[in-house]
Each structure stands twice: as C-alpha cells, then as structure tokens.
Design a binder for these strands. Structure first.
Lengths: 224, 224
DNA sequence: TTAATTCTTTAGATTTTCTTTAGAATCAAC
DNA sequence: GTTGATTCTAAAGAAAATCTAAAGAATTAA
C-alpha cells in the first residue's frame, strides 16, 4: 500500500514515516502545499493523509485535486481537535475519514486499514480505448464485452502503454516499468520482445487493428 | 433509523438524545450495563452506541451480545482519549467504529451515517445466486432446498466471493478478509488453497457447474 | 548493394503458480 | 479426557507463464 503523508511538523512526519514503514507501507512525505501538489499530480497513491494546517496553504485545497486525480485514492484528514467545521468541510470535499490531533499512530493505522478495505471494495473505474475496456479491479481486458485473457506481464505492459498513449516508449523504459527493480537482471530484452509480441497479437486478433506500432530503433507507440 | 445510546453521564446522554431526535432518529437510552443488556436482548437496533466506561460493568462486554443478537446492527464505541487499547479490543470484538470523548455531536452524526450506509449495503435477508441460496442468519447454504453443509472457513470464503462476484480476488486479499489479522501468521497460502478447493468441489458437486474460476497469477473469480 | 543493426517469430527450458492428496495439529462437542 | 470435525502443513505432480536462445525478416546506414 502506497501512502503519501502531507505534514509539515518534522517530528510528527518522522514518527509516522518510521512507524508505517515498519508496517509494510510504501511511504512518502510532503511537507509543503506545493510539494504535495506536485506529488499528487505525478504519482498514484492508495491513500493520502493530509494535515489541514500547512504553512503555505490549507491542506483542504489539496483534497479536490486528489479526488480529480483518482477517486480510488482514499483521503484521511489530520486536524486539530477544535476545528470541527474544517473536518466536516473536508468530508464534503471528498475526504473519507479524519483523525484528531494528537493521536496514537496505532489508531491512525487502524483507520487507514479500514479505509483501504472500504476503498478497494469500490473502485469500478474503467479505462476505455476504442472498443476495448480495461477493468483495473479485475485486471481484465474486454473487447465488445468479450473477455480477452491476459497474463500478468501482458496486463502490465498494456497498462504502461495506455498511460503513455500516443507516445513512443523505449524498451529500456518498458523494462524498467514492467519489470521494476529486476530489469537489470534481464541480460537482454528478449523477454520484453516476446511479451510485447504476444500482447500485440491478442489485441490484433480481437479487433483486427494494430494498436502497437514499431518505431524502429526507438521503441513502440500505442495509439488507437 | 433506530439507535440505542448506552451512556451513563446524564448530560451527554441528554445532549445526544436531543440532537439525534431532531435529526429524525428513533432514539433510546440505557444508562446502566444491566439496562443495556435487557434492551439489547429484547429489541433490534440499527446501531448501538456504547460508552466503554459504565458504572456497573464495561461496555466492552456488551459488544459480543450485540453481535450475537444480530450482525446487522452497527456498533459505535465511545471512549476516553487515553484508552486506545480498549478501542482496539472493541474493534476486535466486532465494533465497527469509535469516537473519542469529548466529541462534537455533529461528528458522531457523520460517523453514524457512514456506518449505517456501510451496514445496509451488506444485505440482510437471503442471498441468491443461480440455484443457490445463502441464509446469513443461519449461515447455511442451500441448493434447490437441499442444504449443503459448509465449514466456517468455507462459509466465509463463499461470502467473500459473493461480495466480490464477477471480480478477481487475489489470494492476499482473500487471506486478509477471511483470516483477518492473523493472515500474516500464515506462512504461505496453502490453507487458502485447500479451503478454496474444498468449497469449489462442494459447489461443483451440488450443481455440476464451476463457479470459482482460476485466474492464473491473479487470483480467483466467482461468477454464476 | 551490402553489412550491421534491430525486430519478429518459434520452440523449448526454466520457473512460478496451482491442484491434489494425505496426514498432523488444533478445536469443539460430548 | 475422548472423539470427531475442522483447519493447517507439507509435498509431489500438473499446468501455465516466463524466459532464453536461435534463426529468419525488416530496416537502416555505409
């Protein structure tokens, strides 16, 4: 689970980072409004924990941008006890829950867990391109209501192509994003080739169209 | 919505009663452990709000009896700020959420609303899929009026599949939801496998159909 | 045109994941 | 406590996915 903590108090930020890292969360911290904005715009998080009181702006204003980015991301508000109107306002803006400062990290942990569970149950957000539909929930691909079974690697490849639609992506960057840290262990790009071709064939077979075009010497471009 | 407030402080009890009555709730108050026990045993509530600190016993001990009475009833704990262990204990016993004293009634209101929504989603009466019927009350499964005996784990598995019908659920999420906090203690997923296969066989034997399909590398999908 | 590079395709080896079975440990009812 | 049912562990075999390798095709650059 990937969590972004937006908190300007270094002591509290450190405590949360320390605790939740050991709990197996993938943690990131932003200490300013602008820093948080940038992270929200560029990365996807399962949960964003936002402190309302920030030095350079109200965390409240961050909530809509999180919602806009992905409504699968859970939003947890941290706020001082006496600012109830803030909390209610936050919930209205799309936050899912809030915890009052001061609090025990264990309590926040319990709430984050509950929030995550609730969120993962929902999220029927689907990605559409041409006559294809990708359902991230079930990690399946449909073409005109017919399911096209993809292997894990093929699915990840497809997602990376969709994210970079109409752009040329190089093999090294594909390797890095689909294979992650283990990309170096691949002696060559044979595996990339093979999975790419398999995905290409499946898409072609279902639709009769070539979605993945080769850009010789550069990489591949996915376009509809 | 019918709510039982278990609270011994008259001032707070009055405040809640006054506020929630105007909000259109059907409210009842119990100020002692014994009084609360009696009400729980004899009436059905949508939500029970229970204060942990009561003069003649811990509200904690009331939780199991509420759960036993009906697992459709939502349970909200009220507790002092410094009694975190109590709260966690309460959640383990089956409570759904908690609010720390002191609190604003608006906050409690927001939480009760959220809790109610969550609870009513869960479906109460009987769950039907194909020629199967699940009766959550008695926790039994029927196929064309013939009872199919399920073990506890198999029943929980089935329920989790039904909730996530037509979606792929991963083994880790199955482990988390069926085995709960103890999921980590399972060294591997052998147990998940075994119970899953047993359930699959029972469903298949009764109906001749395969309801649980394997999605290689992803998990399983339950579909009718 | 030719050589070098990059890409495609295929087949089989390797690894991972799933199924099945059997028996040990645990739990619950008597 | 004893018994029976349930749950968990372990291990072996099956199935699927992934990777490797190698040969042929396409593209580019000299």
């Amino acid at each position: 689970m990937k969590v972004l903590f937006i908190e300007d108090e270094p002591v509290l930020a450190d405590e949360m980072l320390g605790y939740f890292s050991t709990q197996g969360y993938l943690c990131e911290v932003a200490s300013t409004f602008s820093g948080a904005s940038e992270k929200i715009a560029n990365y996807a998080y399962d949960i964003v924990v936002v402190d309302i009181g920030l030095p350079d702006g109200s965390g409240m204003q961050l909530i809509p941008s999180v919602v806009a980015q992905s409504n699968e991301t859970g939003i947890m508000i941290l706020s001082a006890k006496h600012s109830l109107p803030d909390k209610l306002e936050g919930l209205k803006l799309g936050a899912d829950d809030y915890v009052t400062k001061p609090f025990y990290v264990e309590e926040l942990n319990a709430r984050l867990h509950a929030l995550y569970r609730r969120k993962t149950l929902k999220g029927t957000h689907q990605i559409v391109f041409d006559s294809f539909v990708v359902d991230p929930q079930s990690k399946t691909l449909f073409h005109k209501n017919k399911e096209i079974s993809l292997t894990k690697k093929e699915y990840q490849l497809l997602l990376y192509f969709i994210v970079n639609k109409e752009r040329v992506v190089s093999k090294p960057s594909i390797a890095e994003h689909v294979w992650g840290d283990y990309a170096d262990q691949l002696d060559n790009f044979d595996a990339v080739y093979v999975h790419l071709m398999n995905l290409r064939k499946k898409l072609n077979k279902a639709s009769g169209k070539d979605y993945i075009k080769t850009v010789y010497g550069m990489g591949y471009r996915f376009s509809s």
